[in-house]
Nucleic acid binder design. Structure first.
Lengths: 212, 212
DNA sequence: CCGGGAATGGCAACTTGTTGCCGATGCCGG
DNA sequence: CCGGCATCGGCAACAAGTTGCCATTCCCGG
């Protein structure tokens, strides 16, 4: 087994610099993103002139991206461009799959720079792709998800603010003019949206997504 | 009362550009910092040739900065340079006071850029300075604090990781080979260090400080 | 006007987290 | 060896958070 099938690139610039040709000629791009920091630049790539048709685009996001107005706007824009957008509460790794022939897997953040592994080994790519498909199937279409959570997003910012202030549920509920039960419903919904199982984790993720 | 005594500057660059002369000729610099993002650049300022003696430097930090290896290193470096460094669990606003004649107060973060108010009005500056002194007196010297919290820092990374993973205290304690009581002691200490009153807030701050 | 679905918030049972207390254990310095 | 001194961890009382249940209210389409 050769190691040549995996290339590690450092930072978005290098990644997109070295893989631009893949994007330009792709007919199917599939992308899972935890937040938008990672793949924010994707759409900026100029399409290759040789490119006849617009590639099929599938994007899978975590619910949290919709809570932040600016990332939510981006998601909507992507959707409006014709991409299929779905939302999943599952923990997903950041991944791009191109034509089921190349997989780009995001690694850890080091000094503000992220590593990316570009995989070309067919079997591995197929595996990654099928894992993605599973996640995709269980995810909710953006429009559907949107309809379900319209007013949650309206309330979420203030709930987050209060949670982040460290005050008790009692206090927070009064502040919002809500019953404690209802406030806690909001918190629970928020935690589900963030894929968090504890308040600590929710706090970390909320901060992670820039919601606070 | 004239407004001329307060100048608002936007961003660190403008701040340090416009106040460099103050730093260069200062004989006493006093500085309170919540994290290092704000005053990170402070020490980089070249000293003015006219400057005879090294200014007296007092720096007040929150405990959280010691939890992050890189910021902790910076704090230690500052201390080694001869600055007096103390740690306070109090909520402090980010402030620089120069020779008890100028006060620089950090404002909110807007679009990743922070506003700074430069105050020259003597009465206000004196007031700010005396508030700082009060906080300084009740703060703990870095060396002392260090000795007192050695074992917290040893475990903090793993505790944070477990908290961030969303698992229950029971599970986390077992994982670390600790009793639940002891694990919770660590969590409580951590929350104190982070200045958090709830686990949600702790999660947000931990993430904020890059501890997760 | 009426029936049904959705949101609300009180209640309560239960889980999780918080903290003081205290005996046990281990590590010094005398 | 012995008397502090600190840490550990079990216990327990309490506070905080989680969730199902359900009566009430409101809104909307029929």
């Amino acid at each position: 087994m050769s190691v040549d099938h995996v290339t590690v690139l450092r930072g978005e610039e290098e990644l997109f610099g070295r893989t631009a040709h893949l994007f330009a000629t792709a007919s199917e791009i599939t992308c899972a993103a935890r937040d938008l920091n990672t793949w924010a630049a994707t759409h900026r790539h100029p399409r290759d002139a040789r490119q006849v048709s617009t590639p099929r685009l599938r994007k899978l996001f975590r619910p949290g991206v919709l809570l932040n107005p600016s990332t939510a706007q981006h998601v909507r824009w992507v959707s409006a461009q014709g991409a299929a957008v779905r939302i999943t509460p599952d923990d997903i790794n950041e991944t791009i799959i191109i034509d089921r022939r190349f997989a780009i897997l995001a690694g850890d953040l080091v000094d503000g720079r992220r590593d990316y592994g570009v995989v070309t080994e067919p079997t591995v790519v197929q595996n990654v792709a099928s894992l993605f498909d599973a996640a995709w199937r269980s995810a909710t279409d953006l429009a559907v998800y949107d309809a379900q959570h319209a007013e949650l997003r309206a309330l979420a910012p203030r709930v987050l603010e209060l949670l982040a202030s460290g005050c008790k549920d009692e206090t927070a509920a009064r502040t919002l003019g809500l019953g404690v039960r209802t406030y806690r419903r909001r918190v629970a919904e928020l935690m589900t949206a963030l894929g968090a199982e504890s308040r600590f984790q929710a706090g970390a993720r909320a901060r992670d997504l820039g919601l606070i």
